[in-house]
């Protein structure tokens, strides 16, 4: 090096340095509502040892976390809680949707279960499976680390452009609209909610 740096000094960009630090110390917020949660616990424990990837510090306070792992089905009563937890987490933050239920509702296609958390909160990475093996979740975390290293910025500029909801629109919207016209139910406030994007 022409500048003549001392031996234990190296030059880098701030973005890269921040990404390197962030990606190797992801602190997960476990949102384990069902059976996938057990697999998440297995991932953190000695046999699979998430600590190898710097992500072993499961914090149960969203203020201290930067990776939300939604493991399990989310029912309608729980979704406001999930959204509040997401809003409470400090930037920069990422979200992994783990398992078929968190990604799409899985086999629970009923009135009580949200058909994919990505409809209501931003999701960065989906881990499929019912439940995903711990290796699969670890692969997901490595993938997320790579993504942070490649696209992350010091002040989270990459997030600003994402103003659209990531998830799909409910498939049944059409069906619901038809149903609503066919059999209007009097005095049913939830049913009359206007934000079923007309």
């Amino acid at each position: 090096m022409a500048v003549g740096l001392p031996e234990n000094v190296f030059l880098t960009k701030l973005d890269v340095a921040a990404n390197w630090v962030r990606s190797n110390s992801l602190w997960p917020m476990p949102f384990a509502t069902a059976c996938c949660g057990i697999e998440l616990m297995a991932t953190a424990s000695s046999r699979f040892d998430l600590a190898r990837f710097g992500a072993e510090v499961m914090r149960f306070s969203p203020r201290q976390c930067d990776l939300l792992i939604v493991a399990g089905r989310v029912v309608t009563k729980m979704l406001p809680v999930l959204q509040r937890i997401w809003l409470q987490m400090p930037e920069p933050k990422w979200c992994i949707s783990m398992g078929a239920c968190a990604c799409s509702g899985g086999v629970f296609d009923t009135y009580a279960v949200v058909q994919g958390v990505d409809r209501f909160i931003p999701v960065d990475l989906y881990v499929p499976g019912c439940p995903p093996r711990p290796e699969q979740l670890i692969a997901g975390i490595i993938e997320l680390q790579n993504r942070i290293k490649q696209t992350g910025t010091l002040n989270g500029r990459e997030f600003i452009q994402r103003t659209e909801a990531t998830g799909p629109e409910p498939l049944e919207l059409e069906e619901l609209r038809r149903l609503r016209q066919a059999t209007p139910v009097e005095g049913l406030p939830i049913f009359h909610a206007p934000d079923l994007k007309t």
Partner: peptide, 9 residues
Amino acid sequence: RHNFPVITR
């Protein structure tokens, strides 16, 4: 189950 506010980035 679809009647919630959508939170974006």
